[in-house]
Amino acid sequence: MAEADPVIEPQTAEEVQVEQQEPATPKRRCMRLALMLSIPLLLIAGAGIYWLGLQGKVSTDNAYIQQDKVSVSAEVGGKIIEVLVAEGDEVEAGQLLFRIDPEPYQLQIAQADAAIASAQANVIALQNDSDLTGVDISAAREDIAFAQAKFERIKALWDRGFSTKADYDAAEHAMTQAREQLKQAQARQTEARARLARGSAVPGENPQIAAAKAQKASAELALRRTEVRAPIAGVVAQADRLQPGQQVVSNLPVLTLVSETTTYVEANFKETDLADMQPGQRARIEFDAYPDLELTGHVHSIGAGTGSEFSVLPAQNATGNWVKVTQRVPVRIAVDEQSPRRLIAGLSTEVTVYTNDDAKD
Score class of each variant (00 low, 15 high):
residue 3 E to G: 11
residue 6 P to M: 11
residue 17 Q to F: 08
residue 29 R to C: 11
residue 33 L to N: 12
residue 35 L to D: 12
residue 36 M to A: 14
residue 37 L to W: 01
residue 37 L to N: 00
residue 39 I to V: 15
residue 40 P to A: 06
residue 41 L to N: 02
residue 42 L to F: 15
residue 46 G to R: 01
residue 46 G to A: 14
residue 47 A to N: 13
residue 49 I to A: 11
residue 66 Q to C: 11
residue 68 D to S: 13
residue 78 G to H: 03
residue 81 I to Y: 03
residue 81 I to Q: 08
residue 86 A to I: 02
residue 90 E to Y: 12
residue 93 A to I: 05
residue 95 Q to W: 11
residue 96 L to N: 04
residue 98 F to G: 00
residue 101 D to M: 00
residue 106 Q to G: 09
residue 106 Q to L: 11
residue 107 L to M: 14
residue 113 D to N: 12
residue 120 Q to H: 08
residue 128 N to F: 09
residue 131 D to E: 10
residue 132 L to M: 11
residue 135 V to L: 14
residue 135 V to S: 13
residue 136 D to C: 00
residue 142 E to H: 12
residue 156 A to P: 07
residue 159 D to T: 10
residue 163 S to R: 05
residue 172 E to I: 02
residue 175 M to G: 08
residue 181 Q to M: 10
residue 188 R to E: 11
residue 194 A to I: 13
residue 202 V to P: 04
residue 205 E to V: 15
residue 207 P to Y: 06
residue 210 A to D: 09
residue 211 A to H: 05
residue 211 A to V: 07
residue 213 K to T: 14
residue 216 K to Q: 15
residue 222 A to F: 11
residue 223 L to R: 04
residue 225 R to G: 02
residue 226 T to Y: 04
residue 232 I to G: 05
residue 233 A to K: 06
residue 235 V to H: 00
residue 249 V to A: 14
residue 258 V to T: 06
residue 265 V to W: 06
residue 275 A to V: 13
residue 275 A to T: 13
residue 286 E to L: 01
residue 287 F to L: 02
residue 289 A to P: 01
residue 290 Y to L: 02
residue 295 L to P: 01
residue 312 V to S: 12
residue 322 W to I: 08
residue 322 W to Y: 13
residue 327 Q to N: 02
residue 332 R to D: 04
residue 334 A to K: 14
residue 335 V to M: 06
residue 345 A to S: 14
residue 347 L to A: 01
residue 348 S to W: 03
residue 353 V to M: 05
residue 354 Y to A: 00
residue 354 Y to G: 00
residue 354 Y to N: 01
residue 356 N to T: 12
residue 356 N to V: 09
residue 359 A to T: 08
